[in-house]
Design a protein around this nucleic acid. Sequence first.
DNA 1: CTGGGGAGGGGGCCC
DNA 2: TGGGCCCCCTCCCCA
Length: 537
Amino acid sequence: MANCIVFHTQIASIMEVLANAAVAEICKLVDDDYAVFRLEITQSQKENRALRRKLQLQELKVSRERTEGTMRERVLTSRPRSVKILDRYRGMARGEGPLTGGHRSFVRPAGHNTWRDDQPITVEEGSGTSTQHVIVIESADIEAAGPGFKQERSEGEEDPRHSRDIQTVATGGAPAAPEDPTASPAQPRTRRSITEVSGMLNAVLKSETDTKTLTVTQRLLPTGSDHRSDPERLEPLGCPPALGSEYLLYGNLSPRTIQSHRDSGDVLETGNNPSCSYTTEMDPDNMALGLERQTDLSRGDWNRYSSSVYSEGCLDKKGEGLVVGEVTVKVEGDAPPTWNADSHLGDGLSQGRDFLDYSERLETNTNVVTHSPLHALRHHDPVSTSMGPSDSHGHVLFDQVLNSNNRARAQTQGGGTTSGYSKEKRFLCMFCNKGFSCSQKVERHQRVHTGEKPFSCTQCDMRFAQAGHLKRHQRVHTGEKPYNCTQCDMRFAQAGDLKRHQRVHTGEKPYSCPQCEKRFSERSYLRIHQQKNHSTL
DNA sequence: CTGGGGAGGGGGCCC
DNA sequence: TGGGCCCCCTCCCCA
């Protein structure tokens, strides 16, 4: 018995020794591999840094060469230094409109003659040439960008800060160097712009940021996955294309109250381009204002990028703004590159235009510029949306404009208020950051920004963003009026019409004027009444 | 001012 | 979860 115990003890000791030896061996192997791995990583990082420096040097060299060449041709006034971030607003490339498949180009926005050479930056891919608008952000002289400044220029006024010149921002404050847009393909152009931003701001952009930025800007170029750019793969009329993940999926976001404007249709609805087999309607002018077609970033690539941005960023719970440490470009005294001065597309502002204009103003005033329009929006809860005194000027301005038409409706519908977000809305519009409960909803919503109208009426030229709207519209042709009044013979094609009509019978006037207590059966009457008699709204 | 026509945006429900 | 559909609310326009 004693021998047995001794034997077991010895066995246990041997096992322990063996186990310890094994552990030590494993640790040694791990340490060795780890050291090797670290060494490889270090070497790779060194190589990356060297390549990055080399790239920057080459780009600066090219930039200087162009500067020398073009400086002679230009009279340089006190033009402010400009910073262009070409990939700030990626394309809303859903509706290619006149854009033929497979082509992507960078051009100055139509009508913006201040883009020095009046020549589009064209990147021809394939057999054709198409246009693609570039939205850029310019940094004005600090002295020109006073606090809370607001640029409202008259039509036709030529503000150099709004010129679409691509200018090199020399680190030493040298005059901006115009760049020949025609001489530079889109990708290096964009990349250089970012690099220049980095150069000017020095430490604002870390090297990692540059890398990330370069990666993103490269995605501006079309990819093979862009099925919408391929006419061969276009969906038939009336059938929406399979949509990619053109929205942001972000969990646990506080509700957004940012609404988009109505009436995009009038502006976005352009002349029908018979060459466009896809039924998207895009207004080229409008595209220039905010619906540029830097396609790929509007798709999964962009979403991935944005997701990464979000993952790296920090959402201020107070809604003060999204802090994206490594990707945020801080531009002091940035002039608002609004397009108001030289673009008038009618009475109504398009959604994209509104968004662009005021989001950029917002960025200007908050001195935060990032590469995503999402960052241009202040992330704030619905309560803070009501333009509280703590809001920054830009914040207020942006809210005033972006929500002006929709705030009331959003509140009544619960679309932009707390009550409307009882359900988790993880799917974010990548243009306005509004949250939706499912991807279909956000895809449908994003057509507001893109102008995409995939549903085409076979009997007229009308196009619609929603299938239900097309179906409803077709009653115009069929004469179907399924909603009939029970108190008279009136019939209506829309349920809302019947409901509105029934107030004739009921005498209901739910809308009362707060000034004179006069009551109206429709809200629009009240609004007109207030406009005429009380000078409100 | 009233009433109707038609469209845009979005929520909810069902499969 | 995606897709489709229906419905609601709202708006603009016009007679």
